[in-house]
């Protein structure tokens, strides 16, 4: 358990560094609200190497801390909804044991943006949000793919070192 706590701390630090790097290098393609979500590499990796509960703890802690450091309350609300929905989808898909981390990450990326749209419809209460759904879904697909490739390769290479179960 001690070992796990230490790993959680390390991974949280990593996730925060990823968030920070992302603030420094804006991955901007001209569409507001779309970013790479580098920190999700750590979350996906943790889901596989540490376990579900740990991934949730990590995700919540990351959203709160990075929200307070780099964002605002709105950013926290959006990230929280996206993060939780995406993690839940990834956990359920992982439980089926049929898919590789890459596919699960893609689903997670899409779920992440769907979660944000759900929050956005509540906050903005404007049906124009609807027009944004396809854009965000495609973006989630692309970022999910990139995150998935990295997380899967990292896990396959160093995941066994972190096996604490």
């Amino acid at each position: 358990m001690k070992k796990k706590t230490a790993y959680l701390g390390v991974m949280l630090a990593l996730a925060l560094i990823c968030s920070y790097v992302e603030v420094l290098i804006p991955f901007s393609i001209g569409i507001p609200g779309i970013k790479l979500g580098l920190a999700n590499i750590v979350i996906v990796f943790a889901l596989y190497s540490l376990g579900t509960k740990e991934a949730y703890i990590l995700s919540i802690a990351r959203v709160l801390i990075s929200g307070f450091m780099f964002g605002n309350v709105m950013a926290i609300a959006y990230s929280f909804a996206g993060g939780m929905l995406s993690l839940t989808v990834m956990y359920l898909l992982k439980k089926t044991d049929l898919l590789c981390p890459l596919s699960i990450s893609i689903a997670g990326g899409i779920a992440h943006n769907i979660g944000q749209i759900i929050i956005a419809t509540f906050l903005v209460s404007n049906y124009y949000v609807l027009y944004y759904v396809p854009v965000l879904m495609v973006a989630g697909f692309i970022t999910g793919t990139l995150i998935g490739i990295v997380a899967q390769e990292v896990f396959l290479r160093v995941g066994h070192l972190l096996r604490v179960r």
């Binding site: 898919l99 890459l102 596919s103 893609i106 899409i110 759904v133 879904m137 697909f141 899967q152 396959l156």
Partner: peptide, 22 residues
């Protein structure tokens, strides 16, 4: 499962179809 397999192809195709559908 660790590597890309048949299930993944089916799953990703489904996701793409879902996105296009939306």
């Amino acid at each position: 499962k660790k590597r890309f397999g048949k299930n993944d192809v089916i799953f990703i195709s489904f996701l793409i179809l879902f996105c296009v559908g939306v």
